[in-house]
Design a protein around this nucleic acid. Structure first.
Length: 137
DNA sequence: GCCAACGTTGGC
DNA sequence: GCCAACGTTGGC
C-alpha cells in the first residue's frame, strides 16, 4: 500500500464535509498541477491519504482511503486533468500541525515542508507511521 | 525554445 | 494583507 497526503482549504472542502459523505466518498477534483496529477495517477484503490487543512488550521486532521482510481476530472473542460474518489476513514485523535512537523527532523524531507504548494504528495511508510503515532493512533 | 510577466497557492 | 515559490502564458 502507498501513502499520500492531500490538501484542502477547509472553506472549500473540509474534513467534516468529507466525513458527511460517508462510504460513498467524494471526487477529489480541481487539481490543476501536473506534479499533483502524476501523484494522483499513481494512487491505487485502498491506498491511504492524510487529509490536511491548508490556510486554516494547517494541520493533518484525518485519514482517507482511495476508493476509485484516477479518471478524467469532470470539472476540467480541457480534459487534461484527473481526479480520484476518496472517503473519510477515521480522524486523528489529535490533529498533527504543520508547526509540529516543521520542528521534527524526521519530516524535513516531506513535500509538505519543502514544496508547500504541492497539493497531492507522497508520504513514506516511516513518515506515515510517525505521524499516526503523533496523532494518537 | 527562451524568458519576462503574470497568476495562484499557502505560510506567515 | 504580504510575499516567496513556482507554474503558466505569450511575445519574440
Amino acid at each position: 500500500m502507498n501513502y499520500w497526503l492531500v490538501k484542502s482549504e477547509p472553506s472549500t472542502w473540509s474534513w467534516d464535509q468529507q466525513v458527511a459523505r460517508g462510504a460513498k466518498g467524494e471526487a477529489w477534483t480541481g487539481v490543476r498541477n501536473h506534479a499533483a496529477k502524476l501523484n494522483m495517477m499513481r494512487m491505487k484503490k485502498g491506498d491511504r491519504a492524510f487529509f490536511y487543512h491548508s490556510n486554516e488550521g494547517k494541520e493533518i486532521v484525518g485519514i482517507a482511503e482511495i476508493i476509485k482510481e484516477h479518471y478524467p476530472d469532470p470539472t476540467d473542460a480541457s480534459g487534461k486533468f484527473v481526479c480520484v474518489d476518496i472517503k473519510a476513514e477515521k480522524p486523528l485523535k489529535s490533529p498533527v500541525t504543520l508547526e509540529l512537523l516543521k520542528h521534527d527532523r524526521r519530516f524535513a524531507k516531506m513535500a509538505l515542508i519543502k514544496l508547500s504548494r504541492l497539493s497531492v504528495q507522497p508520504v513514506t511508510a516511516d513518515e506515515w507511521k510517525a505521524i499516526c503515532k503523533l496523532g494518537g493512533l
